[in-house]
Design a protein around this nucleic acid. Structure first.
Lengths: 168, 168
DNA sequence: CGCATCATGTAAGCTGTTACATGATTAT
DNA sequence: ATAATCATGTAACAGCTTACATGATGCG
């Protein structure tokens, strides 16, 4: 179960409310894991009962800011370093790309075009993020991760352009 | 729900038994979608009731070979071309990579080494597959998809090597 | 004959999605 | 005022995992 570890990881980066975590899943973690608020709030309650997170402050609109505890940090480190990684993935776009050769040329072309627009938007977002980091507007330790995202999306973009050029 | 469409896609490539589909999910589709036999058999039964697949032959050990029907092909095309793609992903390795900067240098190094070995094995498998396709031992239409897999894994491999070289 | 592999299924429990529900605060 | 956004929760249902269960066939 990696929802709980994703939450622990985000809280290790900085204390957050459930609402903020929901947005972080939508933004930073979007390409690796998805979770909606209806899953996040109950999971935070469970993690609190297990002593892995705690409420560190309460703000306006009955908001609760959670922080990771020492035993939460231990659990997170254990998952990252010690536990056997689960390499299985669920990626609908990957399935679609895998099956695209079944389509006739016109449909194939249309789906590659659609994917290309999407990747280009994705790349723009990542490049903007990199620019912000370079301008020291953000902490640096995650710069290599952003770079990897850019490289993977660049490879996909170029591959899609080739397929479109070659009538593939 | 893309399990049903992944099954339709695999059956569009060639008729198969549930057992063979299980192996294909483990091999060809491994990096995009996972499904085990306990999910595949009930789903085949559902697809048959819906008229999207049919039993085309029965073999030894009470095995049933399923093929896609015309209405299954329509449904598959609709999903691939017409339907709004779900871009959300579930990728535990991605979450782990995203959170790795939280670790101290020794732990970080260890997890990058572990991931590097894994990617290298993955790449070897894909390169072997490409060699088989080039030697015309396999049908050609999926060659670009194999090439994309190789390029993505190469980018990840090189990134990991850089992180290890830079003490990142 | 016994083991590995092929082959298909079901059941319990956990994970994730969609929809429902409510209230607080800020901006227009 | 009232609409948008912030903020938290619950319930019903669908999807997925793990474990249980059984039988057929081929190989040594």
């Amino acid at each position: 179960m990696s929802l709980r570890h994703a939450i622990l990881g985000l809280l290790a980066r900085s204390p957050s409310t459930g609402y903020e975590l929901t947005r972080k899943f939508d933004r930073s973690l979007r390409t690796s894991w998805h979770a909606s608020h209806s899953q996040i709030y109950p999971e935070l309650a469970k993690l609190e009962r297990a002593g892995l997170v705690e409420v560190v402050s309460r703000g306006a609109r009955r908001s609760k800011t959670y922080g990771i505890t020492d035993s939460g940090r231990e659990e997170l480190r254990h998952w990252l370093v010690e536990a056997e990684p689960d390499r299985s993935q669920r990626n609908e776009s990957g399935v679609r790309l895998f099956l695209t050769p079944l389509l006739d040329p016109a449909d194939r072309h249309a789906t590659y075009e659609r994917d290309l627009s999407h990747v280009e938007v994705e790349l723009d977002g990542l490049e903007e993020l990199r620019a912000q980091v370079n301008a020291s507007e953000m902490p640096e330790p995650f710069a290599p991760q952003i770079e990897l995202g850019i490289r993977i999306n660049t490879v996909i973009r170029d591959w899609l352009r080739e397929q479109l050029d070659n009538g593939g």
